[in-house]
Nucleic acid binder design. Sequence first.
DNA 1: TCATAAGTGTAACAATTGTTACAGTTTTCG
DNA 2: CGAAAACTGTAACAATTGTTACACTTATGA
Lengths: 231, 231
Amino acid sequence: MNEIPDIYGCPLWADFTEDELSDLISGTRYTVISYKKGDIIVTQGDICKYLYILAKGSVRTEMFTEEGGTVTIANIPSPHPLASAFLFADNNRFPVDVIAEEDCAVMRIPKDEVLRMFTLYPKFLSRYIAFNSNITNFLSSKLQLMTIRTIKGKLAWYLCSLIPKTSTATTRNIIVKPDMNQTELARFFGVARPSLARTISEMERDNLIKTGREGFTIINVTALKESIQTS
Amino acid sequence: MNEIPDIYGCPLWADFTEDELSDLISGTRYTVISYKKGDIIVTQGDICKYLYILAKGSVRTEMFTEEGGTVTIANIPSPHPLASAFLFADNNRFPVDVIAEEDCAVMRIPKDEVLRMFTLYPKFLSRYIAFNSNITNFLSSKLQLMTIRTIKGKLAWYLCSLIPKTSTATTRNIIVKPDMNQTELARFFGVARPSLARTISEMERDNLIKTGREGFTIINVTALKESIQTS
DNA sequence: TCATAAGTGTAACAATTGTTACAGTTTTCG
DNA sequence: CGAAAACTGTAACAATTGTTACACTTATGA
């Protein structure tokens, strides 16, 4: 395990004790491959026969990280699985290139070994499924947001999603506070920052919301929800 | 099994023989619940403790329940799993309401039973993982498309994705043929049909592509790829 | 074959968002 | 505290896309 020290934090065995992990790894057939900065690790169209775990370095790709990962061509840092969703998909080809952004070490576990690990370590199976499920959930909500056409709709959707469940439908003047500032919110929505600011002003003018240091105040939940338009 | 005839075609056991499926189902603890049209099957925020398989009817998922403020996300036909990605996710709460679009029958398998089925039927496990992986891949490519801002970029991305792998980067005049007409393509891109037609005209005018009965002719692959902008 | 439906090309105008620039406010940190 | 940085509000203008309408072409089926 000394050769691959960085994989401890990998979400696939995040909740394992050191002994469990040691047990899991030592009984598994795998290879570790090093890449120089700029090397192509996998090419678009390659068939995915291994579970790839980035142990060192970072790679450049258009894939998604587990949570908060953006659509952009982003650096996936180690330790992180690289292609967990392609290994068992019916179409198991990489849709993108994966390129070493710096010197990398990649742990490569054959598909049948992964299946064996599933049967021997139910906890690993759970984590694997949970990991992919998390990605699905992240992508779903991201896609939901993207299908809303207008900035007004996106903001309304987002603010509504922040309403505590204890509120009733008729509650007025609900205060919600995003954990992002306006600039981050604009990037999250995929819109230009001044455009978001303009929309906020308009919604304030139309008495849908109020803004202040405490966050956003939703004046009329029903009216706000009605301003969500998906097409 | 007579009570739940429609689940045969469920993708989770699409490749099972009738005997295998019979074996799988008969040894499993589950309940079948009927809903009338309009019934709420699950509510946003509910913790997902079961694998839900829609055996009869169809459902729609909505983001918000209050009258007037509903946004339909998707219609799901039977037989289809309803929440396979939420059952094992770290945040295992439904993000949406699920409402019966017509009279429905839902097969409900407890989480621990699903785990037991995984260990007893590796084939079922494979299908379950494949199913979720397929969803992830579908969502990824959909989201990738949605993040391209311009119609020109979307079309360029799509046409490039249709280029056969045998073509080299320098090949010119590649003919690709979408399996959708212009109207369907516009809906696929999430844009208005006349807007797509206008963009096609502009790209023809700019000598990026040609159109004809045989499909699209990509005049210059490199130039086309450069017109993909993700922002 | 011919009437009808479906699909496509185009134009004028409206609506929305992006871009750029700048001023005012708030936060951070030496 | 006070300067610098980060953040926010706003405006003018450009770019893109949506909406609506209509003519034309192609496919379909009685």
